[in-house]
Nucleic acid binder design. Sequence first.
DNA 1: TAGATTGTTAATCGATTAACAATC
DNA 2: TAGATTGTTAATCGATTAACAATC
Lengths: 231, 231
Amino acid sequence: MREPHRDASPSSKPAPKAVVGRLSLYLRQLETFARQGRETVSSSQLGQALGLNDAQVRKDLAYFGQFGQPGLGYPIEDLTVAIRRILGVDRDWPTALIGLGNLGQALLGYKGFRLRRFRIVALFDNDPRKLGKSFDGLTIRHTDELPEAVSSQGLRLAMLCVPAEAAQRVADHVVSSGIRGILNFAPTSLFVPPDVSIVAVDLSVQLEQLAYSVHNLLGDSSPADDISAAG
Amino acid sequence: MREPHRDASPSSKPAPKAVVGRLSLYLRQLETFARQGRETVSSSQLGQALGLNDAQVRKDLAYFGQFGQPGLGYPIEDLTVAIRRILGVDRDWPTALIGLGNLGQALLGYKGFRLRRFRIVALFDNDPRKLGKSFDGLTIRHTDELPEAVSSQGLRLAMLCVPAEAAQRVADHVVSSGIRGILNFAPTSLFVPPDVSIVAVDLSVQLEQLAYSVHNLLGDSSPADDISAAG
DNA sequence: TAGATTGTTAATCGATTAACAATC
DNA sequence: TAGATTGTTAATCGATTAACAATC
């Protein structure tokens, strides 16, 4: 048996957003290592698997506590449990899906979310042709019914897949219904109060970044021959 | 008539990745302004619409040339054209979609890509049950046929929607087939040669970031009452 | 013990913001 | 002209990497 780690938040500094993003990557990689039957991992091994510097791995983890043992590395099982708790993915997240166009319907079927305990338990759309239809055992309701659903179903997050023109209006309604986190798939910037979190998934922006680098960086000159990693 | 801007790349410094990402946001906002009939915009107006600092807007644009006029701001039409050219979205990008599970099928139907001239013109999947099936007038082929398709169809980008376990293997094949840009939807880190660009779209990581901030940042303490923006 | 590896401080690097002369 | 706004330099802020004593 190992000693429990000392403290889940030893320093008072809040973790930067970039650190939290990497925490998700660490979790996923640790799960992969665990499936391979490994029991410990060093910061350099974990970093290598993700294309990150070993010092960065140690520093990131140190934001949240002391999880490793000098000379031995990090216990995979314990660290996995700790990161799940830090991220808040050690419980279910009842989630509303708003907007059932192409993308919305796909997200509904996407297994990656279920795996991570994000449960889509309510569907909303204001298109009269869609109201009342069912997907996956869930009936599409009008967003007027959001506040009721938030309290009766304990909704905490919403995935927003509505057209750009409607996004801010719907977001305002989502927020006033009591939801505190929005994953925004609409291609537009949203403004929300500071006690609401928002994460933008901007597919066109990401494709444009790809186009830029293929177009500008690689067409003519080519850099050194190392290897680059990306999630 | 206005003077043309002086140079599309006046400084020798390469643009940081973050700047390129914001360039996409500027482009989208400029298109919105243009639809509203506006002809010029100042850095502070553009920044405000996106939740960015005005100095940052000016500095970002200055990486690529002199587009504005002191006292007047930026001409929307000209700047739009310039940014499209810089990003490389002033032309079609023939794109392969690899992996036609839930997510892949949804991306095929997603109109946002077409709007931006990313054309999905070839489908690949190695599941025997899917081979030969058609979507949207395109027949699903085995990835063995990728090299041929790259040369005959001029494919330049690939969207990778295969399971995590297969992703690296398929990516290697995609790269050896001559594709130079990958949009990776598989929840795993990929390693590619330095002359290949890769952008990760990691939905679970993004949802976990959302869970973290809802869980940790907002539950207890709440910060000041300004407003935050996100794409 | 000797070798490995952590947690953390210091050094480096890069990105954002403020300030302002130049210019429309 | 006076007011507005750019492009750019300097100041600030934050994030990454290197280095190393402490520790298993």
